[in-house]
């Protein structure tokens, strides 16, 4: 019961935030110099000034701003993301075409960074705690530090040079071999190969954060009395880890996992540019440069909504990880 009303409240608030985001972005984007009509005139070598005016009228840009905003919000409430005048198709269609690619990249980098990060972090913390192979701890922490300090796009470029150009192990760009007409498993393995470099490039930074979070959280918990008691009671290291440490270390990790999603969306712009990944980050950047207002707003709306939904999920996850957390508290 409490859970349902909590959920309803959160969803209602989330919807309000989404509307506010839509309105703010709408006004913000309008501050940019130039509009879709002038970009299109520029690109097509238009020499007729009336042409630009015609376009503006067709796009509805000649209306007063407040009217356009109300129109737009009205659309949003009805679940309509609008029409991309530049591409001559509904915004939702463009986004849905591109979204799977980004979701795939996000999911794989999420799994890789979380898996590697938590694994290495645990390893690092335990070797340190049990005072065995401390060099391993130093190695992992140094690796994490370097990954944390490397510019994402630069790493991507260097990986392309090494693994695609020099070694020729992996494809350098795209999501699948165009024109190969692969089916079934062949296609899946083709996509998987294309996925390796972008995933790695996007994962390493987040991996380093997970390594540090996991290690720090575990160290903290291992210092606590009940864990020490556990050892005193004669439990083995593995049992202590499982029973006490990991469970408590999960909290900060879940928190960051919630935040990662939003960060990945930003990083996707860079990664998708370097690897020609046909995803939503690139769509956003192009829409920005082309002043394709409705498309840009649509992309923002979808990513924000995803982030909010994910935050909500994190909050629920908290509840299961640690029922003591007050649900109104939200993610810290």
């Amino acid at each position: 019961m409490a859970f349902t009303s909590f959920l309803a409240g959160r969803i209602f608030k989330a919807l309000l935030v989404i509307l506010a985001i839509a309105a703010l972005n709408f006004l913000l984007i309008r501050l940019a110099p130039g509009d879709p009509a002038s970009v299109m005139a520029g690109e097509s070598g238009a020499t007729d000034p009336k042409f630009v005016e015609t376009l503006r009228t067709r796009f509805g840009l000649d209306q007063p701003l407040w009217k356009q905003l109300l129109l737009y919000l009205g659309q949003i409430v009805q679940g309509d993301l609008g029409f991309s005048y530049r591409n001559q198709v509904p915004v939702i269609q463009l986004i849905l075409e591109r979204l799977p690619a980004t979701l795939l990249l996000m999911a794989s980098s999420f799994v890789v960074s979380l898996g590697l990060g938590v694994g290495l972090g645990m390893l690092s913390a335990s070797v340190r705690f049990f005072n065995r192979k401390r060099w391993l701890d130093s190695l992992i922490m140094t690796l994490a530090l370097i990954c944390y300090a490397t510019p994402l796009f630069w790493l991507a470029l260097m990986m392309v040079i090494v693994f695609s150009v020099q070694l020729d192990w992996l494809p350098a760009f795209g999501m699948e071999s165009v024109g190969a007409n692969l089916k079934g498993w062949a296609r899946i393995s083709d996509i998987a190969q294309h996925l390796v470099l972008p995933t790695l490039a996007l994962s390493l930074f987040f991996m380093s954060v997970y390594v540090r979070l996991t290690r720090a959280a575990m160290m903290e918990v291992m210092m606590q009395d009940h864990v020490r008691t556990g050892f005193a009671k004669g439990l083995t290291g593995g049992e202590v880890l499982r029973r006490h440490v990991f469970r408590n270390a999960l909290l900060p990790i879940v928190t960051f996992a919630g935040l990662q999603l939003g960060q990945v969306a930003g990083g996707a712009v860079l990664i998708e540019t370097v690897f020609a990944w046909p995803g939503i980050g690139r769509l956003m950047f192009d829409a920005l440069l082309q002043r394709d207002y409705q498309l840009l707003l649509g992309v923002f709306l979808i990513t924000s909504a995803t982030v909010i939904a994910f935050n909500l999920l994190t909050d629920i996850a908290y509840r299961f990880v640690d029922p003591r957390i007050r649900m109104e508290g939200g993610a810290r």
Partner: peptide, 20 residues
């Protein structure tokens, strides 16, 4: 929360593009 909802880098890109 609102500011945290919008992807950071994406937002920075848009802001810089807008204000030249």
């Amino acid at each position: 929360e609102f500011f945290q909802t919008i992807p950071q880098l994406a937002m920075a890109v848009v802001l810089v593009a807008i204000f030249t």
